[in-house]
Structures are given as structure tokens and as C-alpha cells.
Nucleic acid binder design. Structure first.
Lengths: 346, 346
DNA sequence: TTAGGGTGTGGAACCAGTTCCAAGGATTTT
DNA sequence: AAAATCCTTGGAACTGGTTCCACACCCTAA
């Protein structure tokens, strides 16, 4: 490897400006008082030499990397959903001169914690100050992270199999109230036979189901859960569910999908069978993905502000870094039902 | 801010193992020969003290951050397309113990280079070794990057307004041959009246248009470019183009869309007007986005391997870092036409 | 026995910053 | 006029690694 050209150092700047190295440092950190003339002379020397302070050296002393890691776990790819969270993290972070490192991890929920092979960032220390966990989170990963004493905040909607005794910082959105409001909206539009389509073995879909059930119960309506066998994907789940919905007697007038992908699958399959949305059946989704607007008609769905999730994660992580012994907190961000074109008045 | 607990240092480990600090370093870097017994004693001490070497300190000496920045410029959000490139970068990088920092930047093509406000990562030095530029790249940004002497590789398909004299490392995919093959495929299926829909003021769409034109020319067919006024987005562009396509005499039997979003808009608008794809008109896209498979019927399109782009960018950047004076190179990755359901045999 | 070579090891010097103490000079107080 | 205080400033010491030189030790050859 060829030698990297040496960069200007603080000592050379000090020489050039005929001051001591301490003064340069003081100017850089705009901290304690430096006389107007000295400061000007130093700044001029910095400009002239094109000096940019070395980040690593500062960090050793500061004991802060000013960097956090966004760790995406067990996702085959960086979905727009998580991409938006990442963006929320980044935009908030960069305003505070914090950097965001991106890393991915694949692990099995059954691997013992100490056998989980963490990404390189987490193997050295001092590289990052903390961690934002996104993607599916099983208890063994939490154990592993705790074992290296790395402060972290988890995006909690995809946390699986955690007991109530678990204590860690988390940010999530309100699954329950999301479907509660969506379902109430359908009921308000005169719908009585409303089904819910999702695989409720996922904790977050289970919570959404509970929100739907709550709305049905408070209106003394019967709840119906539609599932399908061996789906290849959520879209496929939706497609396979369509037939089951249509075969019910009496035929449901509306369906609440566990997420937008299921809603898409449903819509596509219904349309193929000549069933029109919303004329023949109303449909609502959850998540408000990009594709929701592109559906025809555009999908009424529960909006989740993904960037706000990211921003809140970052905010909470910084608080944790500043106050390591602060008690753990959990933030649930509200969701919003967005009315588009897939619900009709009965 | 509370004090961060001091971590174990190499000197403490040396003390514990009753060896010198140099020996610890040698063990850590598994470099020169250390006797079997000494190595075992050191490793035992490291384990017992839970020692993890400080990354920053090493980097000062090594003059390498082992970190690169993925800079997304002028994108309102991290599209799946770029997300996949990022993933390609990350997965290749992490295998080589390199880290990937994510940053975003918004700038105007008209801002003078020295006025472009770079993200914090690029303001200090030593934090990253190099840069991968994704998103729209105008000459002023290149000038700015060059001014801080930061090695970089650009994803070249979105480079705008660059003369031929521009020299920098770039990785892109083959716009021209993509549409060339797609159009040839349509011609092979018996189509003669084929239009191309896109705003060719984008250089990459212009290249795709040229590929289409080449295929038409070599078959002595007339090329037709469809554009539309003041589109809100690519999808909108597609929607607005549908009418223009249908009003042509004789009516085209196939359309090549500049990208999948335009294809989606076209498809949606055509369907609304009762025109069936592919029965009444065949359609091909470009990019092979996630949505392409979800369209009904799924879209025949030109696949671009985004992760390979990311991987190649990272590979090229590492080469550049190892050989700073190497001549600049440009890699064009091949594309592949994917046959799905939107083209019919005439 | 001595010279020569190879291996293993200790630790000073170094990297590029920050911190802090001491000290110089100016200004104010006594 | 002397003492006290404040504002600036210089630079040694420090951070936590790596590098390199010196040296001890062992083995072999002359």
C-alpha cells in the first residue's frame, strides 16, 4: 500500500501562526477566550495551509466517537420502510455533527448469545458510541449487545419473544390504535362485516389484530381473522386470502389488512376475480408504504412516520449516552389513518 | 455529560500477562512471531480482562480509517434502487473489515464548488478513507470533492453535464445495450410500431433512448419519442404519456418506457382507459425495481444488478486507496432483459 | 572459544490531537 | 506603589495504540 501523504498537523499550524499548539486547539474548539487578533491569525493560517483536524486523535481524548451504528438485522434487504428510518436517523444526527454507520447482520434466534457473530464495528471499541437496532430483534441478540456494554435503542415493533421484564430503550409506533382507528372508520362508513387478514404469529400483526378486535367488540360486531397457508410473502398471503374472504357468508363488505403488502395482494387478487375495490369491497392497509399511493385506487391506510421513528431513536440514544444511568424508556409514536380511495360509504 | 468508564488498555493487559506492550500489539495483529506460550498467556489475559482494542488509536498510526462514506446526493429519499447499492457496498465492505458510513447531501448544480456545504464527515480528516458517490452528480460537486483530496468512486449513471475530459473512477450499468436488447426483443416478437417514452433531457434516459433508436434503425423502423409536459413524477409522466401513445396513427403495438416508474404510470393509465397490457399493447420497462414483479401482469424489464454496482464501487475504491496514482477507470456493468408478462407475440 | 545468525521480547518514541498548569502581562483594587 | 485579579498564552503531559531498535538468548559454524 502506498504511503498516504502526511496531512498538515496542529503543530505546523501553530508554527505558521507563531502561536502555541494549545491556542490552535482552543480556536478549533471555539472554547475558552482567545483574543480577537490571535484567533484571526490562527484562522488565517488554517485556511492557508488547508488544515483539517484529524478526527481520530480528538476522539481518543474525548472518549467519544460521535458516531452511532444503524444495525439492520435479519432483513434480506433494506426496505423503504427501514430506509426511511435510517434517513430519519441520519438527518437528525448530521445536524448534531454525529455520524451514522450502516451495518447489517443475519442471525438465528436460536444461536446462543455468545455465539452471535457481530459485525466488525462492534468488535473493536471506541468506533461507535451506541447502536440503533432495526430489523427483527430476538432476545439472544439483546443479550449479546448487552454483553459488550454497548448502549442501544431498539425500534421496538419488530421485537419478538421478549418478556415484560426486559428493560431497554425502545421506540415504536402504535399498532393497536392504528387498526383501532382504521376499523372504526370502516364502521363509521356503515360497514358491519369486516374481516382482518394477517398472520398473527408476528407480534406486531397480533397487536394490529387486537386493535381491530377492540373496534369490533365496542360495536358489538363479530371479528373474523383470515389467514392462509404457507404464504411465500406478505403479498402472496394477501392473494391467497382473497378467496377465503369471498367465500364467506355473508360476504364481508370490508377487509383490514395487517399491512400494505397484504392489502396489495388482496387487491390484486380481488381485481383478477372481477371484484372491485372499493365498489364491491372496501380495503384498508397499514404502514403507508410508497406503493400505497400507486395502487389504483390509492390505498387508505395507517400512516407511520418512519423518519420520526429514526429521529426519535437517535434522540433517545444521545440521551442515553449523556446519562448512562437514566432509567430505560419506551416511546410509542402515534399513527394516523390516511383516507384515500379504497373505502366506500355503505 | 457523565464520564465514560475507562476501558482496559493494552498496558493493563501487558501488566496482567507479565509481558511488554509490544508483545500485546504483536499478538493483536497476529503478525511477527510470538512464542506459543507467550501468545497463549496474552490471549488468556485479553479474555479475562474483556479487552477490546481501541479503534481510534490504531487508526492514527495506521493512517487508515478503514471506513468509507456512502454519500447519497440530491435524493429526497433513499430509494430501493440506491438502498440496494448501499447494501452491495456494505456486504462487500464488511467482509474486508471495512466500515460504511451513510450520509446525505442536498446541493444545487449552480452553487460554486467552494460554497457547497459538505456533510460533517467530510469536514474533518482521517474519519473516512474514501467516498462512494451515489445520487445525482453535477460537475460542481466533483470539483468540491477533489478540492479536499478525497479519493472517490462515482456511480456514473446519474452523472450530469460532464465533459469527456472528466477523469474519475466510475461504475455504471449499460443503459444503451439495455434498451437495445429490450427493443430487439419486441421486434423479434413481431412488433413494428414501437414508441419510447421518457424525458430525454436526463442523460441516462437519453442513452436508453439511443439504444432503442439503434434497434429501430437496424431494422429500418421509425423511432417515435413520447414526452409529456410538466410531469409531477416519473409515474405521472407515464400516465400523461398514455394518451399521446393511444392517439397515434397507426396505433403503436408496443412501448419502451425509460424506466419502471414510467412503465407503471403508462400501465395504470392504459388500464383505466380499457387498454389491456399486453393484449392491446406490449410494454417494457427499465431498472427492475421491486414493483415490477408486483405489476399485473408482471413487467418485462431490463434488470440492473444494483448490489453488484455497490460491490464494484467498493472494490474500485479500495484499489484506488491502495494505488493512489493508478489511472482512472470506468466500469460498465451489463444489464439483462427479463421476460415476464407484458410482451406478447404479434 | 568466538563469531554469526535467527528468534523472541521490552519499551522508548511516536501519532495528532486535548488538557491543564504555570506564567506573563494588563488591569483593577487596596 | 504594591497586591490581587483577570485574561491570554505556551507547552509538557497525556490518550492508547504501533513501530522499531536494542538486547538477550539459543543454536550453529569456524
Amino acid at each position: 500500500m502506498e504511503a498516504v501523504p502526511r496531512k498538515t498537523t496542529i503543530r505546523e499550524v501553530a508554527q505558521a501562526a507563531s502561536v502555541g499548539i494549545g491556542t490552535i486547539s482552543r480556536v478549533l474548539n471555539s472554547s475558552s477566550q482567545v483574543s480577537r487578533e490571535t484567533r484571526a491569525r490562527v484562522l488565517e493560517a488554517i485556511r492557508r495551509l488547508g488544515f483539517r483536524p484529524n478526527a481520530q486523535a480528538r476522539r481518543i481524548l474525548k472518549r467519544r466517537a460521535e458516531m452511532v451504528c444503524f444495525l439492520l438485522s435479519n432483513r434480506d434487504f433494506l426496505h423503504p420502510f427501514h430506509a426511511r428510518i435510517l434517513q430519519g436517523v441520519e438527518s437528525y444526527a448530521s445536524g448534531l455533527k454525529q455520524h451514522v454507520l450502516f451495518a447489517a447482520l443475519h442471525y438465528s434466534p436460536r444461536t446462543p448469545p455468545d455465539r452471535i457473530d457481530l459485525p466488525p464495528v462492534l468488535q473493536e471499541h471506541g468506533l461507535i458510541d451506541g447502536l440503533i437496532l432495526a430489523g427483527t430483534i430476538y432476545p439472544n441478540l439483546l443479550r449479546r449487545i448487552e454483553s459488550i456494554n454497548m448502549p442501544f435503542v431498539a425500534f421496538s415493533n419488530n421485537v419478538v419473544g421478549m418478556g415484560d421484564e426486559e428493560q431497554f430503550d425502545q421506540v415504536g409506533f402504535d399498532d393497536f390504535n392504528g387498526t383501532l382507528h382504521a376499523t372504526r372508520h370502516l364502521i363509521g362508513k356503515g360497514h358491519r362485516h369486516i374481516v382482518f387478514a394477517a398472520d398473527v404469529s408476528y407480534p406486531w400483526l397480533r397487536r394490529r389484530f387486537e386493535g381491530y378486535r377492540q373496534a369490533m367488540r365496542e360495536n358489538k360486531l363479530k371479528h373474523v381473522l383470515i389467514t392462509s397457508r404457507n404464504p411465500q410473502s406478505f403479498v402472496d398471503f394477501g392473494q391467497k386470502s382473497a378467496g377465503r374472504i369471498l367465500s364467506r357468508q355473508p360476504r364481508p363488505t370490508a377487509a383490514v389488512a395487517g399491512n400494505d403488502e397484504i392489502a396489495y395482494g388482496l387487491w390484486r387478487s380481488l381485481r383478477r376475480q372481477g371484484v372491485k375495490v372499493p365498489d364491491d369491497i372496501s380495503l384498508v392497509g397499514f404502514d403507508d408504504r410508497e406503493e400505497a399511493v400507486l395502487m389504483d385506487p390509492p390505498l387508505s391506510t395507517v400512516r407511520v412516520d418512519k423518519e420520526e421513528i429514526g429521529e426519535t431513536c437517535m434522540k433517545m440514544l444521545l440521551e442515553r449516552l449523556h446519562h448512562p444511568r437514566m432509567t430505560f424508556s419506551q416511546r410509542i409514536l402515534p399513527t394516523e389513518f390516511v383516507i384515500r380511495g379504497t373505502v366506500r360509504q355503505l
